[in-house]
């Protein structure tokens, strides 16, 4: 199972085993990671699962699609170059060890 680490705005960290194919958002929400709100449940409709991808993984994770890109423009925390909506990032062996920082404001 690929591992993913979430870093809270206050620096607290948690590492979880993800189900292959589950999104970074689903892995967080099902295990009660705070700060990933994800009200729409992964439909790319709410921009409340905003994360910053650790530099070591930005190339592997890739760029947001056009819809996600527009959603990020309106996210509660200002977007950065490494911003993604975690519902659109699917876990895989390639992303084993992924580290994401949770955006301070989601709604």
């Amino acid at each position: 199972m690929p591992k993913v680490t979430y870093i809270q705005p206050d620096g607290a960290e948690i590492t979880l085993d993800a189900r292959d194919g589950d999104s970074v958002m689903e892995t967080a929400v099902k295990n009660g990671v705070r700060g990933i709100v994800a009200e729409c449940g992964g439909a790319c409709a709410c921009a409340t699962c905003h994360v910053f991808i650790d530099e070591a993984f930005t190339a592997t994770v890739g760029e947001p699609g056009p819809l996600e890109d527009d959603m990020l423009d309106g996210a509660a925390s200002d977007r950065q170059a490494n911003s993604r909506l975690s519902c659109q990032v699917k876990m895989s062996a390639e992303l084993d060890g992924l580290v994401v920082r949770i955006a301070p404001e989601q709604v």
């Binding site: 921009a47 819809l67 527009d70 959603m71 423009d73 309106g74 996210a75």
Partner: peptide, 9 residues
């Protein structure tokens, strides 16, 4: 989406 996000905010 941009319109929607702007109005929601």
């Amino acid at each position: 989406v941009s319109d929607y996000m702007a109005v929601r905010k």
